[in-house]
Amino acid sequence: MIEAVRQHGIRTPVLVLSALSAVDDRVTGLKAGGDDYLTKPFAMEELMARVEALLRRPDDTRSTTLRVGPLSMDLIERRVWRDGREIELLPREFRLLEYLMRRPGQVLTRSMMLEDVWQYRFIPRTNLVDVHIGKLRRKVDAPGEEPLIRSIRGTGSCCVFLTELFRTATFRLTLAALAAMAGVMVMQFGLVYTQMEAVESRRSTELLRGESRLLAQMTPEHLEYVIRKRATDDMRLVISSAGLFDASHALIAGDLHVWPRGWWRTASPIMWKSTRRKGRPTRYACWLKPCRTGTFWFWAAAFICSRSKSLCCGTQRWLRPSRPFCSPCCWAWC
């Protein structure tokens, strides 16, 4: 019976009780796979002491046996069992499984396996490892059984035994604690979010009320000014995001209809003009301001200087490009 148990890969320590005290019989019992022998009649204390001694032994005193989850491997007899079912493996598959079982839970790449199992010192472009892992997986994981060998896309194959991890109380406790913490965080976030929303809606209501009161107090001229100012600011934003240059210094005259007095003396060489037609959105156009040749060359030189790192002058602040010097507009301008 002990032999049959051992053949199934079960290494539970066995204490053999026998009425036969002949040396031959003891040897047979121990050789069959027994770990200890006790002849009848015996004292109960001795039996207890021997049982406790067997329990004190490490789980597997034979280092020639590997055990990972339901898999057990006898390295000397070169046999593998899964839950008592023997798995027939070819020599290469056996070495591959041994390699995986010695590193449970680790991610093993194809190149690692090629180097250590196939002893390749170069990495050929081949699916050799995948083919062997596929064969091994079909043998180890019978239909309906929990898969033990898992692949991670892009890395290679690995032996992951998450089931073992899940069984430990510590892991379950940690998971429960993490889940509880996540729950608390979600609840807190929800609370904060609701409060924020409430505050926001209250503030916007107040703002609207305040603004309408302000608007009611304004004169029509003031109102027009405010609207124009806002439109101009928006225009500046649009121009600067279009990437031509920093528009904060540009004169935006489009909305004013009347060019300001002495506009040719303004700093910027660019002129903005808006065209308005009934029922169509206002269009803005820009061109170089007609100026004296000297002024033009001054600006051209300043523009070039602003883009050469060696010549950092004060003009850089005026013509700081919000994008690198790549726009065809800028080239044309130069």
Binding site: V5, H8, I10, P13
Partner: peptide, 14 residues
């Protein structure tokens, strides 16, 4: 024994 539950087995010879 094959269930693997036992930590130690005490077996009679006969």
């Amino acid at each position: 024994a094959l269930t693997g539950e036992a930590h130690v087995m005490v077996v009679d010879r006969l």
